[in-house]
Amino acid sequence: MPLFFTQTLAILQKDLKTEWRTRERLSAMAFFAFLIVIIFNFIYEPGSPIIKTVAPGIFWIATAFAGLLGLSRSYAIEQQNDCLMGLRLTPADPGAIFLGKMLGNTLTMLILQALILPILVIFLNLQIAQALPHLILPILLGTLGLATIGTLFSAMSLNTRLREAFLPLLTLPIFIPALLAAIESFRAVLEGSEITDWLVLSSAFVALYIAACLLLFEYVLED
């Protein structure tokens, strides 16, 4: 199996390198997420206590929507200069290609979250300093879940007539349980209550879907 992981790492490295050269995708995502956080503030009265209960929701909506924006570009960049064909021709295992891309997307989204969390704290006046260590695991699991199904579907949506615009329609319905788990565990951490059940749910979600996508990605990539 070491070959599989070398291939995964190679794909991951390539994706991160192309992303880092321009930082186009990340800056668009970050700006979009920032806009979502700002716009959500207009829904409620300023300083209303509701904001504290909806903050986890705002955080995850911003992540999911901005994340989808980034995910939709994840294969669009491969279409230039027939890079996708090149990827198909490499002796790499399709599962390794999937895993590499998925990890790349996860990292990008984690960076995005690291950027919007402070913004959320400032604009919504949240106190999360103590809760922060407990937040890491649920956020990581939720992001992995989104990246897994998003990476699989972004390859599919490119071939539809709507192209990238089709991605959210496929990803969001499947993502709902993990999104629910992510939002609820965020809220539970802020309230200081138990989150084990939600963590079990999201870890099972991530594990099953990574396994399923490793098997199914071959059929998506096939020409």
Binding site: L152, P177, L180, E184, A204, F205, L208, L216, V220
Partner: peptide
């Protein structure tokens, strides 16, 4: 092919939705 992939991924989601909505 894509439809089959979505058919599988979508149905695998049922236990998660069930568990999540129950917890929720």
């Amino acid at each position: 092919r894509f439809r089959a992939v979505l058919g599988i991924i979508g149905f695998l989601n049922v236990p998660f939705i069930h568990y999540a909505t129950k917890l929720w």
